[in-house]
């Protein structure tokens, strides 16, 4: 069997590596599928944001494309009434828990949430749901980086980066359910942890939860 397979996404025939996850095959071919928690090296995928739903012909229900290995002849539709409803609903839920203040956010115009809204013509501000109370305080204890949990979408990518790329392990998930949060050991300020301010968390954050501090001159603070 060859390493390459041919799949069809939204009527376009394209070739992909056998076994790779559908989401990455689509993105590489410039077919956008909303996603937050997925990252190519995070294996197995968390599949927690529930935004990357697609329809695959022959399957009863929409599936998450980040968990779906491509196989020869797979026919995929990134849009359908069912997919659109799920994505819109998941997105509205996420936005109801996101402290929305784009003007003051350093990720403005680079934010994955804005991208999803633009691509899928969704509103950033929830319409049928009430915004939930803002979560957490901003942790300003480090010199060059801050963490604003009100912006955090709990995708968990920063936790992976801190552990696997930076080899530090200063942050993790704590609590559960609605109270689940990205925190440090004992909820201590980041400055009291092993954090080296390497910036991997900022680089991987799809929104503006982990951000660099900017000094008066408009430059990134340095250590």
């Amino acid at each position: 069997m060859s390493e390459q397979v041919t799949i069809t996404i939204d009527g376009r025939e394209l070739s992909a590596r056998r076994g790779e996850k559908l989401l990455w095959a689509a993105l590489r071919n410039e077919i956008y599928i909303p996603h937050l928690c997925a990252w190519p090296e995070i294996e197995p995928p968390e599949a927690s944001c529930r935004l990357c739903y697609v329809e695959i012909e022959g399957r009863e229900r929409p599936v998450t494309s980040c968990t779906e290995p491509v196989i020869e002849g797979m026919v995929v539709h990134t849009r359908s009434p069912r997919v659109d409803r799920l994505v819109a609903s998941a997105f509205e839920l996420i936005m109801s828990d996101h402290h929305l203040n784009c003007a003051k956010c350093p990720q403005h115009k680079r934010c994955e949430l804005q991208k999803i809204a633009r691509e899928r013509r969704l509103r950033l501000r929830p319409s049928r749901l009430t915004a939930l109370p803002r979560r957490g305080e901003r942790d300003d204890s480090l010199k060059t980086i801050y963490f604003d949990s009100g912006r955090c979408v709990l995708c968990g990518r920063c936790i992976w980066a801190c552990r696997e790329l930076a080899r530090v392990g200063a942050i993790g998930f704590s609590r559960r359910g609605y109270k689940q949060a990205v925190t440090t050991f004992g909820d201590l300020p980041l400055a009291e942890t092993a954090c080296t301010e390497c910036g991997e968390c900022v680089e991987i954050c799809p929104v503006g939860a982990f951000s660099y501090k900017i000094n008066a001159g408009g430059e990134r603070e340095s250590l």
Binding site: I171, G172, S174, T184, F185
Partner: peptide
């Protein structure tokens, strides 16, 4: 106690925040 969780984390070689994650889960 936090001190105990830190000690346990060191012994089993995981970041302390992981033990905290369990204890709060």
């Amino acid at each position: 106690p936090l001190a105990a969780m830190e000690r346990i984390a060191r012994a089993v070689r995981v970041p302390a925040v992981e033990v905290y994650g369990l204890a709060t889960f």
